[in-house]
Design a protein around this nucleic acid. Structure first.
Length: 788
DNA sequence: GAGTTTGAAACT
DNA sequence: CAGTTTCAAACTC
């Protein structure tokens, strides 16, 4: 295992992983807040929520409730308020009111406009199960009065009881992905432990409670979960928990886009933080009550991202009272003294993209099992493709942050391989975190990237294979301190895992991994897998998820559009001069020399990132953001400083971004403003050029069509007479199409200001091209006729 | 494709 | 913070 030296770790940007202190109040779990309580800020202001690129629908058993997802998030927060023996969680559907508070952060995270109807995290009263239509969150609050019974109430059909625990399910994503919650083993009157029950929360489907034979800590039987994509959360009865210092569990599960991708379960993050002086436990209610204002100033570290939409940061822990906890994209539930489990499960792609891999998905039910039980707080987390690298997908995210946090008061955390897995998750390698107060912010891969990787694996091999191999290939850069502790706690970490102590935090570690890093890891895993399974992956290792998925091309968007290769020669691609680096990407297929922006130079790269952030904390933030009120929606964050280009060339960042210069620009002789005639001219020319290209394309297409049509009609003649001369193909339609091409060419040359002589020449050349097409077609027709 | 221009980033 | 240098992209020929 490679370990990053403390010196290097100190170089890592604090902004990325350091979290701001979060003021939380310890509140009894029973203190459920009304559903209309203050919404919990989502997104970046909250530390523990995982953003899922996938839309999820949460439906109550009786009344399926499709949820329009403004964001893709799924988080499970389970908090144990007391040592109560009863095991029950109430699940009561309640629709929360939408609030606009969370919208802002969402937008900042995703870089896209989010409907203001996004509702904050809804808090449910006891025995209730709330579904936030906007945020798609389900909060399961432990209710004291609900402890009498466990299981699903017929009337409500939504009761999941867990004594002393709250279960918060926050999800935004697509439907069809049930979540199975194994209720704590209930002790019957005769003292015998009853079979654990699994609460199946079908997102977008029905909810059902399934008794399952097996120990709480054991994986779910395959038979029970087959044919379903399940997310299993096993909640063992927690005992000996101090009521004064309730321990809460936060389980955040992320599901990536794609229905079948779930089978290729991605790395899981597991982290747990015990109560500490600085981290007092907070109840769900508190987290819900935590206003955005409180959290806004405590945003988590942000990766060097060019655009917020690409930010994938999961922050998790704060070690010192003064430590701040920042989180990108996650609502906070980050409570001190909470156990936090972040599980990322890249699930699938949109149904339309999963057709071909559907069968595979069925056979590979990714099941994530988290056992939180006993006083030891053991967490058994079957790890997916990258057991130790929890991947939280945020669409467009480019950077991955992995953070390990150990509590100073925590017991020695140990991580060991979990028990045998009998479920379909054969590949899932359970990871047991024993009382390890470790929080891990997991690297996140761009949704597209993840989806692509998943798709490839699905189409070529089984998920199990992917997972198994991924484990051996994964490599995690995790700042973690103290190193010895972390290392001892994560003996299962695959070779190459980098752990480093975070600067000044004593025992806080983190890792910063670019999205492509994960992609590379995954792809390398696929390679390994291929070697054992006979699958030959594409030669291009770093494809950035732009390949078609199952034969269906993924709709390219701005975030996934191929980036121009860089040509850096002196910067080693470790300075912002390099667009790749500036965008938080690895160089791929670039023309750079002596490139260090790759996996082979991780330490240098991290150091460079740190340096950039030290110099400018916003170095990786998007340059184009929203302007002030009354100004254009988009403007350069810093403004340009152009002197000679008039801001009408691509040298100007404003012009390049197709936005006008603003008041903050320091440019000289700026012509990039609304009323600028030069700008209008340029815009006109640009538009005209685009139109011309379209017209020309259309004309040529038409010409080809006419010729083809003509060939179809003249073929019989050719067969009888040994072929027709080319001029016989010059029909009225062909002439018209040819003229359109010529006129188009003429217009183009005229608009471009070409001399008349040149224009005439170009037109003639175009005419020649047209004739050649006609002749070629005629020849082809003749040839075809001879053959027939 | 080589050379020039340009402005952001980096440096002092 | 301002001036200078470095750098790579944009641009020109």
């Amino acid at each position: 295992m490679d370990v990053v030296s403390p010196e290097l770790n100190n170089l890592l940007p604090d902004e990325i992983m350091d979290t701001e202190a979060i003021v939380v109040e310890e509140v009894p779990a029973s203190a459920a807040q009304p559903c209309d309580a203050a919404p919990v800020p989502m997104e970046t202001d909250a530390p523990v929520v995982v953003v899922m690129p996938q839309n999820v629908e949460l439906c109550s058993p009786s009344t399926p409730t499709p949820i329009a997802s403004a964001a893709s998030q799924l988080s499970l927060v389970v908090s144990s308020a007391s040592s109560s023996s009863s095991s029950g969680l109430t699940f009561k559907p309640i629709f929360a009111t939408a609030t606009a508070t969370s919208t802002r952060t969402t937008a900042s995270l995703t870089g896209t406009s989010v409907p203001t109807t996004t509702a904050g995290l809804q808090k449910l009263s006891a025995g209730s199960f709330a579904i936030s239509a906007a945020n798609h969150q389900i909060i399961l609050n432990k209710v004291a009065e609900a402890t009498k019974t466990s299981g699903v109430s017929p009337s409500t059909g939504q009761v999941i009881k867990q004594d002393g625990q709250k279960l918060l399910v926050t999800t935004i994503g697509k439907s069809g992905q049930p979540i199975v919650l194994q209720l704590p083993q209930k002790t019957s009157a005769d003292g015998m432990a009853s079979a654990p029950q699994y609460k199946v929360v079908t997102i977008g489907g029905r909810t059902e409670l399934k008794p399952v034979v097996g120990s709480p800590g054991s994986p779910l039987p395959v038979s029970t979960l087959q044919a379903q994509q399940l997310k299993t959360l096993q909640i063992a009865k927690k005992t000996q928990v101090s009521a004064a210092a309730p321990i809460k569990y936060i389980i955040t599960k992320t599901v990536s886009k794609g229905l079948t991708s779930q089978t290729t379960v991605s790395p899981v993050i597991a982290g747990r933080v015990l109560n500490s002086p600085v981290m007092s436990p907070i109840t769900l209610s508190e987290s819900l009550n935590t206003s955005l204002q409180n959290l806004s100033s405590k945003k988590i570290a942000i990766s060097p991202l060019k655009s917020p939409s690409k930010l994938t940061v999961v922050s998790v822990a704060s070690q010192t009272p003064n430590a701040t906890q920042k989180s990108m994209g996650v609502p906070v539930n980050m409570a001190l003294g909470q156990q936090i489990l972040t599980v990322h499960q890249p699930t699938s792609v949109s149904p339309s993209k999963v057709v071909s891999s559907q069968s595979t998905a069925q056979t590979m039910k990714p099941v994530q099992t988290v056992t939180m039980g006993s006083s030891q707080f053991k967490h058994i987390i079957p790890l997916a493709t990258q057991p130790n690298v929890q991947q939280i997908q945020v669409p467009g995210s480019r950077f991955h942050y992995v953070r390990l946090v150990t509590s100073t008061t925590a017991n020695t955390a140990t991580m060991q391989t979990g028990g045998p897995t009998t479920s379909t998750m054969q590949t899932a390698k359970p990871m047991v975190v024993n009382t390890g107060t470790v929080r891990m912010s997991v690297p996140i891969a761009p949704a597209q990237t993840m989806k692509q990787v998943v798709a490839k694996s699905l189409t070529t091999t089984t998920t199990a294979q992917v997972m198994t191999n991924a484990q051996t290939q994964q490599r995690l850069i995790m700042p973690a301190t103290p190193l010895p502790q972390i290392q001892s706690n994560f003996t299962n970490l695959p070779p190459g895992t980098v752990l480093a102590p975070a600067p000044g935090t004593g025992n806080v570690g983190y890792a910063v991994v670019p999205a492509q890093y994960v992609t590379q890891l995954q792809q390398s895993s696929l390679v390994t897998m291929a070697s054992s399974s006979g699958f030959n992956p594409p030669s291009g290792v770093q494809t950035q998820a732009r390949l078609p998925v199952n034969g269906l091309s993924t709709a390219p968007d701005s975030s996934t559009r191929p980036r121009k290769p860089c040509n850096c020669t002196k910067s080693q691609c470790l300075k912002l001069y390099c667009d790749c680096f500036a965008n938080g990407e690895f160089c791929n297929n670039c023309n750079c020399n002596n490139c260090f922006n790759n996996l082979e130079h991780e330490t240098e790269r991290l150091k460079a990132i740190k340096t950039c952030l030290d110099r400018n904390p916003g170095a990786f933030k998007p340059k184009i953001g929203k302007g002030k009120q009354g100004e254009s929606d988009r403007r350069h964050s810093k403004g340009c400083n152009c002197k000679r280009s008039g801001c009408l060339k691509n040298y100007c960042e404003c012009y390049e971004a197709k936005i006008m210069c603003s008041s903050i620009c320091k440019c000289v002789g700026c012509k990039n403003f609304e009323e600028s005639p030069e700008r209008k001219t340029l815009m006109h020319l640009a538009d005209a050029a685009e139109v011309r290209v379209q017209q020309q394309t259309a004309a040529k297409t038409k010409l080809s069509s006419q010729i083809s049509d003509l060939l179809m009609r003249t073929t019989p003649v050719s067969t009888s007479g040994g072929g027709r001369l080319p001029y016989t193909f010059v029909t009225k339609e062909v002439v018209e199409a040819t003229c359109e091409c010529l006129l188009d060419q003429a217009r183009q040359t005229e608009l471009s200001g070409q001399p008349q002589a040149l224009a005439e020449r170009l037109v003639l050349e175009e005419f020649g091209h047209c004739l050649m097409r006609i002749i070629s077609s005629a020849g082809k027709a003749k040839s075809d006729c001879i053959n027939c």
